[in-house]
Design a protein around this nucleic acid. Structure first.
Lengths: 274, 274
DNA sequence: CGCGTCCTTGAACCTTTTCAATTCAGGTGG
DNA sequence: CCACCTGAATTGAAAAGGTTCAAGGACGCG
């Protein structure tokens, strides 16, 4: 172990695939060195997992092999346009991705040709875990709005995890969390009525958005009723009725895709089968 | 590499915590050296993941650090009686388990006090993945019949995975597969009608049982209609009706918990929303 | 043999889907 | 700039599918 300290030149600083109004860099090596302001442009502060992973890898690894792969951590940031695909079913698994800005949906094509939404992913969350095992992706990842993603190649991931048990553990945590989250969704689908599912969905989304610095009560849905319905196992009409009913009951204020949570407690209660 | 040929005695044959009619040993160091026959006693040949993991760790690790922890690999095999719990919600995560013989269900307690079945686990499959991340289990694991499990302590797991990228990969595969499987279940719950869910469930279970050497067409359900219903998001009555209807259509032959698949093609077709 | 548990089946009721009509917002082209 | 078009959301009414309630039957165990 601890070889290759000699090679700061695995490759010349690669051309960043970054366009559009992006914050200067994904890598905040010294958070303290930056004024807080730049981090919250308009969207929210970012908690891109891959950026954090690289960062903690850089600062925490006791064997300090940073020098070994200096160029790589900065490699990939991709821009995906609204409606564009980050990857598709059957694509070989080459990288893990983290949403840097924007939102994604993951979906699969059902045997009879319709699409089934399997998840929504906001900034900071990982994409592509499904492909690690089989070596190819088992779902499509589609941008719900113009988005940026960071990627971590298979090789780099292996290298980082092999070198650091701590990161390994952190990574398992992610996968384990995903499993637990899926179990929640399965609970929704199996046990809750339409309105309750909608409530659960909103609470969950709101919490996650809050986690990355958004308002806990005012949210803008980036996905259609159709997509929400597919995710929740409901028709778009039923989702719409759910929103309307929650609006009537003064739990929400809904105008198209703008949602304001008026009575959070009651919303939580509904989602838990009160 | 490939040392330790010397040591059929990593340790004196440890006191296996095994009672009942169990195959001689969990560890089949040289599959070829054994006659095929003993592997299929009545239950099925076993493919206990942890046993295989240990085995491949022993033979494949290029750095051969076996000597370091000679006693541990053979440690634990537990017996759990029908209805007994392997672990419960909130238990600290100490080990990963693999079903050696028998079947388990995993379940969570819903907020309103009922239990929700989140999965069934047959011989060879892992249990406890949900706890890796948070450090405590997020579900109960209950034996559906008298069962044996192998366990792999947190520490040992870490050591094995840290030492062997290959095993690491194999392990991710497991977790990733779990995620993919959950997505299938979510698809069932969200898109299929009662009868189709039952069909999917049977096909899935049948395939897995076939994978460990059982008949593809004749299966004995170890779980109640209630539990199947909970898993599929249906009431027990609806599950029962599903079975009955499939029986009427000559796709199945159902007698209580004995199920015989008569028309596998049609069953598959139904489960895929034909 | 009798009891309890699990399974099956029927009928009424309720939720959700399906089908259909209408409105609204945003984008395009005249 | 406005008319028009398209896609998305809302809402209503009828139909289908599941649940709930209820009763009866099969099996295993003491």
């Amino acid at each position: 172990m601890l070889q290759a300290h000699t090679a700061p030149a695995t490759t010349p600083p690669p051309p960043l695939h970054v366009r559009g109004p992006a914050p200067a860099s994904c890598e905040t090596r010294r958070p303290a060195a930056q004024p807080d302001s730049w981090q919250v442009p308009r969207q929210a502060r970012h908690d891109c997992f891959i950026c954090k992973l690289r960062q903690s890898w850089l600062v925490s690894d006791p064997f300090s092999r940073h020098g070994a792969h200096p160029a790589e951590p900065l490699k990939a940031r991709q821009v995906i346009k609204r409606g564009g695909a980050l990857f598709k079913v059957g694509d070989p698994f080459t990288s893990l991705y983290a949403v840097h800005t924007g939102q994604f949906k993951t979906s699969t094509l059902t045997p009879d040709g319709r699409t089934q939404v399997t998840g929504f992913h906001i900034a900071g969350e990982l994409l592509g875990l499904d492909g690690i095992g089989s070596g190819m992706h088992s779902c499509d990842a589609t941008a719900l709005e113009d988005a940026q993603v960071c990627s971590l190649s298979h090789e780099e991931l292996n290298r980082m995890l092999t070198g650091s048990p701590m990161l390994q553990r952190q990574f398992w945590q992610i996968m384990s969390d995903q499993i637990v989250h899926d179990q929640h969704v399965m609970f929704w689908l199996g046990n809750l009525k339409a309105e309750e599912r909608v409530a659960s969905f909103l609470i969950n989304l709101s919490r996650r958005l809050q986690g990355i610095g958004h308002s806990a009560s005012a949210l803008v849905l980036r996905m259609s009723r159709q997509e929400i319905g597919s995710y929740l196992g409901l028709t778009l009409e039923t989702v719409s009725r759910g929103f309307s009913k929650l609006h009537q009951q003064r739990v929400l204020e809904v105008k198209e895709r703008d949602v304001r949570i008026l009575d959070r407690d009651r919303l939580v209660q509904m989602g838990c089968r009160a």
